[in-house]
Amino acid sequence: MLGQVLVSGILVGGIYALVAVGLNIVFGVLRIINFAHGEYLMMSMYGAYWLWRMGIDPYLAAFLVVPAMALFGALSERYLVRYTLAAHAHVKIFVTLGLSIALQNLALLLFKADYLNVRTSYQTSTLDLAGFAFSVPRLVAFGALLVTAASLYAFLRYTDFGKAIRATAQDATTARLMGIDVERVYMVTFAIGAAVVGVTGCLLIPIYYVFPTVGIDFVVVAFVVVVLGGLGSIPGAIAGGLLIGIVEQFSGFFVETSLRQVVYFLIFIAVLAVRPAGLFGQRGAEEIGLK
């Protein structure tokens, strides 16, 4: 019984980690708080949902949703976030908040507040491994997490463009002196972050309902996970996601589901108060770009 709870904790955690990895590249690495990140997820899920209505399997829909989201991410950087980069702190915070509110309400206007879900053959199937039941769509999501996280990690660590992203986050002016096209870095990073969210949306739609404010629930957990794991750290995001998933499934025994978010928030607050660098973050690195 406890083993099964652990299994479902890990699988749920995998989903949280996946959302967090997408957030981590923009918030953790680039240090831009994009409040609309959750709405990117909402859009991806609606995209996968409507493609399913048109007869396309959600997993195949990723081939359309991911490029579309990458484009949307790039556009929202180019035509919105860019104007805030050199602006006062309040402009930075509230512009993406405005975008988030606008997108949520646009979805409400277009799709009403209904909870929508897809129906697939594999939706409820489970795999029996070592005596535990693994839900197939969650297992797929977990596999995608590992692949996405590993490629992002390698990309950030070993490629020149990945290094350029990290350099830009640490000191944009000096990055420019290295010959880095800083504007391009910002735009591409947003595109990558949104593309990861696009993948996530397609993997989530066989598991969860989509509705206009679905992004909020996930983005809240994602912020907690990123801070817990350490800003900018991909292994941290995975560890943080799994930890939160496991804590959530076990705490389901003790506290009611309606109090679940209180647990997240308290973890979030405790980490920031005690160790702002998070579990895997470099000490002091949490202040990058903020002094």
Binding site: K163, A164, R166, A167, Q170, T173, T174, G179, I180
Partner: peptide, 24 residues
């Protein structure tokens, strides 16, 4: 630049590699 302006959270090697980021 004045005051070095290295990328403090990157290794020496990564800093040097970034020096040759340009296409040139």
């Amino acid at each position: 630049p004045e005051g070095r302006a290295l990328f403090p959270f990157m290794s020496v090697l990564e800093n040097l590699e970034l020096g040759s980021y340009s296409r040139r």
